[in-house]
Structure formats: structure tokens, C-alpha cells
């Protein structure tokens, strides 16, 4: 009975122990493009170990983040799926111009769950033999726009257009293919490659010259300008350990270190 009387205080004890660390550590609100979710989770974990700052990650489509940031969303950093959105935010004064840099360059893969469907040259696109081709919405997602560019260069766009099913973002596009509902689709390399190899199914790594590079830029937003932890995360993204993670997930890296 006696211990029960002190229960409220006992419950507060852990917060006392946690306090000294939390005083030095800050939280950073980070908006992360859906295609970069897996590597970013890893990077955030390593970042927290190294600095004890905690990156709170929100995943979604870059277009939605743009709208939310315009309307006062509390994000401090945006890791976009494109270069255009950070550029626009800088132009509108919502982000810091000199903070912008390319943290990863995306690659497109034509992918199927069926291990025998997609050949090494992507000839299946011309041959047919599929009912649905999943792409990310080209209006909303850079990976979708890159898929359209690729099909246009190959001269196949009109042929396959009627078989498109569109995901709102690249995660949903992946879902359509991974559940087998679409026989194949254009997804991000980061979604289907682990350690330089396809983790399942069959795929064609779309040659980089078939579409404009999918440059993914990071930018420090106005809300994060006075948070040293946010600046420190921006810097960490260009560190060797972060770059190694990014590369391991199938992204290319900008040739020269941005800073």
C-alpha cells in the first residue's frame, strides 16, 4: 500500500534519468520523399547514435509536402524526390537557398514479381504480354515523369498507354506490382535492389540516358534555420557513412561533394 502512495512519483522517475541527455539533444522534423524511406530510416538511426539528435521522419509525396510546407507544416528539412520543388521553395522564400544540394540520384527499374517476365533489355515493353503496367503519376511523381520520358524515347508510349495503372507516389506503384495486381511497373531502384542485386522477381535497370536524371535535392526549410540539429543532419547527409548507405540502396551520388 505504501508504494502505491508514491506511484505517481515513481512513474516520473524515468523522465528524470532521461533528462540530462534530452537537454542536449534536439528533435528535427524531416519530410522525406517516399522512395527514400528505407535508407533514411537507417541514416536517421546512425545519426541519432552519432549525435543523440532525433530525426522525426514523415514519408510522403513531394507534391503534398510542398503544399503542406506552404501552409505552415512544421517541417525543418525536406528531402525531396526532385530538384524542382526545393528550388521553388527557395524562390518563394520558404527555404534557405545556400542549403540546397543533391543528396541522391534516383534510378528507374522496370520490375515484375514474376522471375521470368522482364528480360535484361526490357524488350517485354514492345512485345506485350501484360495487362497492366504500373507507373507513378507523371504529374505528381518524378519517377512517373521519368517513366514517361523512357517510354517516349523508346517510341512505345502510345502502345502501352492504355495499360497504365497509376500510383499516387512511387510507394503505391511498388505496392501495385508487389501484390501482383500489375504484372510489371516502373519503380525506384531503391525499392527492389539490395546490395547491388534485385531482391526478388525480374527487372530491367533502365539506362540512365533514357530519361533526365532524377535528381533528389535536400533543402533546409525556414522552420529549421535556428535549429543547429537540423544543420547538423544536413551535413551528416553528405558524410561518408550516409553516402555509403545511399549508394547501397541503389542511388547514384553526385560526382563532386557538394560542400
Amino acid at each position: 500500500m505504501k508504494i502505491l502512495k508514491h506511484l505517481p512519483f515513481l512513474l516520473l522517475l524515468p523522465t528524470l534519468f532521461g533528462q540530462p541527455i534530452r537537454l542536449l539533444a534536439d528533435d528535427i522534423q524531416v519530410a522525406v520523399a517516399a522512395n527514400f524511406s528505407a535508407p533514411m530510416e537507417l541514416i536517421a538511426t546512425e545519426f541519432e547514435k552519432a549525435t543523440s539528435h532525433r530525426a522525426l521522419l514523415t514519408f510522403g509525396s513531394t507534391g503534398k509536402f510542398y503544399t503542406q510546407i506552404q501552409h505552415g507544416a512544421p517541417f525543418e528539412i525536406l528531402l525531396a524526390a526532385d530538384a524542382r520543388t526545393p528550388e521553388k521553395l527557395v524562390a518563394e522564400g520558404a527555404a534557405l537557398a545556400d542549403s540546397r544540394f543533391t543528396y541522391a540520384i534516383g534510378r528507374l527499374v522496370l520490375w515484375s514479381l514474376n522471375p521470368d517476365l522482364v528480360d535484361a533489355q526490357g524488350a517485354i515493353l514492345a512485345e506485350g504480354g501484360f495487362k497492366h503496367l504500373a507507373i507513378a503519376s507523371p504529374r505528381l511523381a518524378p519517377y512517373g515523369a521519368a517513366a514517361i520520358e523512357t517510354l517516349t524515347r523508346l517510341g512505345l508510349l502510345e502502345m502501352v498507354r492504355s495499360r497504365f495503372v497509376q500510383g499516387e507516389n512511387i510507394s503505391q506503384t511498388y505496392q501495385f506490382v508487389a501484390s501482383g495486381n500489375a504484372e510489371l511497373g516502373f519503380v525506384a531502384k531503391s525499392q527492389v535492389y539490395t546490395a547491388g542485386k534485385l531482391n526478388k522477381g525480374s527487372g530491367w535497370l533502365v539506362p540512365a540516358e533514357l530519361h533526365n536524371p532524377i535528381r533528389q535535392d535536400a533543402v533546409l526549410l525556414n522552420r529549421g534555420k535556428d535549429n543547429p540539429a537540423a544543420a547538423s543532419l544536413m551535413k551528416y547527409l553528405t558524410s561518408d557513412s550516409a553516402r555509403a548507405v545511399i549508394e547501397a540502396y541503389g542511388y547514384a551520388l553526385p560526382p563532386v561533394s557538394p560542400r
Binding site: S61, K64, T67, H132, A134, S137, R139, F164, Q166, E168
Partner: peptide
Amino acid sequence: GNIPDETRVISVQIYDHVEA
């Protein structure tokens, strides 16, 4: 899958407009 005249209903169309 957002297919015109097959599965693209009003609510999805609105979502698309907002996102774009």
C-alpha cells in the same frame, strides 16, 4: 489505379488536383 473513366472517381480527381 487511377484509370480515367474506369476507376478515377471525383475524390481521387480532387486529390490529384491538390497534389498537382
